[in-house]
């Protein structure tokens, strides 16, 4: 069901650059890149969705890519993109769905840092206005 009854998935058209959401519809990131692994029989298998500035830097390439990569390293010191195993993906559609615990494991460190150090200290940051 998670590929919506489709026989095939075109990676550029249907997976790359789509929004990743948790079960509650909260944004997790974009499918910035994909990890492919060559199996013993020589065929390629898609194993992971990659997200975050490091992955995006590779997609952009060139000077802009290097700038994005440098910025990401400066912001949270990680050289590896965050990854979600494809087996944990529950649905591929207009958004790519993952369970909450998977989403929480790959949440952006810079978002957390900014929330804890800056935004939460401003009065009113904790109340939603719906």
């Amino acid at each position: 069901m998670w590929w919506q009854g489709q026989r095939t998935v075109d990676l550029v058209s249907e997976l790359l650059d789509r929004q990743i959401e948790d079960d509650d519809g909260r944004g997790v990131g974009k499918v910035d890149d994909l990890e492919l692994v060559r199996r013993a029989d020589g065929r390629w298998e898609v194993t992971e969705l990659l997200l975050g500035g490091r992955a995006l830097a590779g997609r952009l390439g060139g000077r802009v890519g290097r700038l994005v990569g440098w910025l990401t390293r400066r912001l949270h010191g990680s050289d590896q993109p965050r990854g979600i195993p494809l087996s944990r993906v529950t649905a591929i559609g207009p958004a790519v769905r993952v369970p909450a615990e998977v989403a929480d494991a790959v949440r952006s460190p810079s978002e957390r840092w900014l929330r804890e150090r800056v935004i939460s200290r401003v009065p009113g940051a904790g109340r939603a206005r719906e």
Partner: peptide
């Protein structure tokens, strides 16, 4: 910006839940 990078965004969530968007 938030939708390009895939961040959580919007006024419907509490500001602390969309820190980069508010920044």
């Amino acid at each position: 910006v938030a939708q390009f990078f895939g961040w959580e965004w919007g006024k419907r969530v509490r500001p602390a839940g969309a820190a980069r968007f508010h920044l």
